[in-house]
Design a protein around this nucleic acid. Structure first.
Length: 107
DNA sequence: AGTGTGACTTGGG
DNA sequence: ACCCAAGCCACAC
């Protein structure tokens, strides 16, 4: 397992309930700003074997990235259950729900 | 070893 | 706000 992969897993596990992070954010926190796709790959590969909160990960548009309608619906269900408002289109307000590690509440 | 693809991102029209 | 094109990186065939 690459250190990058482990780091990605840690970052994802650090996302609190009621918040979400984008692939780019996670990749940057893991040390590879250009590794958004790898984050997605890791998620797809690891979510089945680990207790990863994959449902708290969305794309830069604040939208559920999964193409599969079934899993997509499940993710929106999880998020709404945690208090995140998800649109019928699978959209999320990043200005409200985006989690930024180490960010102060005011500036 | 080369080509293609994807749970991505950013920039321009 | 939406659609399209180019860039990037790892993995599969």
């Amino acid at each position: 397992m690459n250190p990058f992969t482990e780091r990605v897993v840690e970052v994802i596990r650090s996302i609190p309930e009621g918040y979400v992070m984008t692939y780019g954010q996670i990749a940057a926190e893991a040390g590879n700003p250009r590794g958004a796709r790898q984050v997605a790959r890791i998620l797809h590969a690891l979510s089945m074997k680990h207790n990863l909160p994959w449902h708290r990960v969305v794309n830069a548009k604040g939208e559920i990235a999964i193409q599969d309608g079934e899993a997509r619906y499940m993710q929106s269900l999880y998020l709404s259950n945690e208090g995140v408002e998800v649109s019928a289109d699978g959209r999320i307000d990043l200005d409200v729900y985006r989690f930024v590690p180490g960010a102060a509440s005011s500036e």
